[in-house]
Write a protein that binds this DNA or RNA. Structure first.
Lengths: 262, 262
DNA sequence: AGAATAGTGTCTATGAGACAGTATGAG
DNA sequence: CTCATACTGTCTCATAGACACTATTCT
């Protein structure tokens, strides 16, 4: 890493603050939602932001992100062996943002992480944040201004997120939309047992499209390793009882579940 | 970014050094190669490493990566408008590595970038690096120890890369292998004009497989926006003259060019 | 002529999308 | 009964992979 400088110039080393920011996504109702915290201090005081915090001296980036996630939501990172009381989430590194001036106070490089969680937990405000909530992604990004399809007429004007968090959130959402195509990650949005219909509603919420229930059923049950029947059935959605499944061992989907174009 | 700490703890802010490391890939002969520089100072003195350097105060991460790339190779980042003399390359952020102890001297967070370049330039050592070379990825990663297929019996023992650069390189290679499936990025390995056969050899080198020339031709010429004929022909590969193409405007390939499994 | 590469055509298996039709519960 | 959801089956079209065949150059 400290190689290839020409000429070698120690004065080029200047100290940065390094933080982790979290894009925590879940599906509530029929909408893709993200965790937002209200800022309790300047800059952007009172505005919504992504949760995050400094990386500490003894932890690596993934550990810092997992710690922040636990502080904000109580969620533990999915890890076979450690049984979590409140729920488990998928966590992965997203991208790093380090433009000069993205934080007016100092030079901050933020390593954003993406977390996918089931709907179970109620958000809990951590520490100095005055509040936390699950907000529909379309509200946070102000995507529905022209929307002819999504009928939204809420009073709340979409105050933009603090810092460059709108871009980070957009990048995280696009990563999630893309990854559930060719991986089994959509099950991270579901509780440990779920039906094919519930999994389909996850795909519909993340992609924002309607899917054919019959073709979807044939596809996901036909992909080896994606779903394993857990034996039980449920009728919590109404209608004929549906078979319950757990996530199978497969992480990569072959063939992929390509989202319909436009 | 500086939100959600509980309790708010200014002492948690400790200074990091932030660097960019580069995974620069090209196709030489029939092998995927990466740019490696020899370290001229401890730690890991004399060992091969990825090129990289500190992020300066006034530049963002992409600018720092582009500057390092130009210093090491003379390549300019692909950008319609700016005509580069030595050649252009694709550049994108890869991932960030920040484990404590990855650099024994201090806490360093490295934002790795991935660059894809055509074979034109000879590597030029920058500044304090005592040398630079294009090395086959399989040599740098020591992947060919058991290889029954790839006949390699070179004298050079694969001394592992310095720091955690082997992992960074592996991540970059995997990103490149995956991205040429569903994007037109493979053309970044080609000169401005190229034949279908040359493009196929790029895919074969990156994936390490043999592809059917006839199906490949039908596929790439049938994907709209991937290739546009430039009018000329060439016979530099021997055999019947081949039509020359340029990269089309499409960045995403639909349908994708899926690599054969196993 | 023979070797090498370029390019076209043809067959087959597989999967996606559209949609008919049946099964089983709640009210 | 009606309605909602679950599930199965069938048809058609597009595409991938395998491979025969022709075209054009070089040695």
């Amino acid at each position: 890493m400290i190689t290839g400088m020409s000429p070698y110039d120690p004065s080029a080393f200047l100290p940065f603050a390094v933080t982790v920011d979290l894009v925590v996504l879940t599906v509530r109702g029929h909408a893709l939602c993200a965790l937002a915290v209200r800022r309790g201090e300047p800059p952007f005081e009172g505005r919504w932001a992504l949760p995050g915090g400094f990386v500490r001296g003894e932890e690596n980036l993934a550990e810092a992100a997992a710690r922040e996630l636990a502080e904000e939501t109580g969620l533990c990172v999915q890890d076979p062996g450690s049984d979590a009381p409140t729920g488990t989430a998928h966590l992965e590194q997203l991208a790093t943002y380090g433009d000069p001036g993205r934080d007016p106070r100092m030079r901050v490089v933020s390593v954003a992480h993406l977390a996918l969680a089931p709907d179970l937990p109620a958000p809990r405000a951590g520490g100095d944040a005055e509040g936390a909530r699950w907000a529909p992604v379309r509200d946070l990004l102000g995507e529905d201004l022209i929307g002819g399809d999504g009928a939204r007429r809420d009073a709340e004007p979409p105050a933009p997120l603090a810092f460059d968090h709108a871009r980070i959130l957009a990048d995280g959402v696009e990563r999630a939309r893309s990854k559930i195509e060719y991986s089994s990650l959509a099950t991270a949005f579901c509780p440990s047992e779920f039906t094919v219909g519930e999994l389909r509603r996850v795909y519909e919420a993340v992609w924002g499209v309607a899917l054919d229930p019959r073709n979807f059923h044939r596809k996901v049950t036909g992909t080896p390793g994606f779903l394993v029947p857990s034996g039980g059935t449920t009728t919590r959605q109404g209608g004929r009882p549906a078979q319950l499944f757990r996530a199978g061992g497969a992480t990569v989907l072959n063939p992929p579940m390509l989202r319909p174009e436009i």
